[in-house]
Amino acid sequence: MRPPAQTVFLERQTYRRRRLIDLIKILPLIGLVLWLVPLLWPTEGAEQVSSANATIYIFAIWFVLIVAKALSVNAFNAGGSQKDDELKGDERGQS
């Protein structure tokens, strides 16, 4: 049961919404990469990263991610009504 072929070009609003979903999807990956940066830090020797700086780094990522996430989710919620089709279409694209 193949879904009917989807239109290739979407109207502006739908296009924006798709890109918003892309942002929502990519944020955790950005977070993961940034939070795995400490793997590169030396754990011994003179060039060790100080815990104070590490704390600031980690919490800064956290804070930025939360804000970005909150903004994007709010934007997503505001776009309301047509989300069902969006989600479905998007799922197909994924699988």
């Binding site: 795995l36 400490p38 793997l39 754990t43 060790q48 100080s50 815990s51 104070a52 590490a54 704390t55």
Partner: peptide
């Protein structure tokens, strides 16, 4: 105080962190 404590430096093994 962090800088002067015993946990002043990043000493976490990469394996444990990930």
């Amino acid at each position: 105080r962090i800088d002067n404590s015993k946990i002043a430096n990043w000493e976490i093994q990469g394996g444990r962190w990930a």
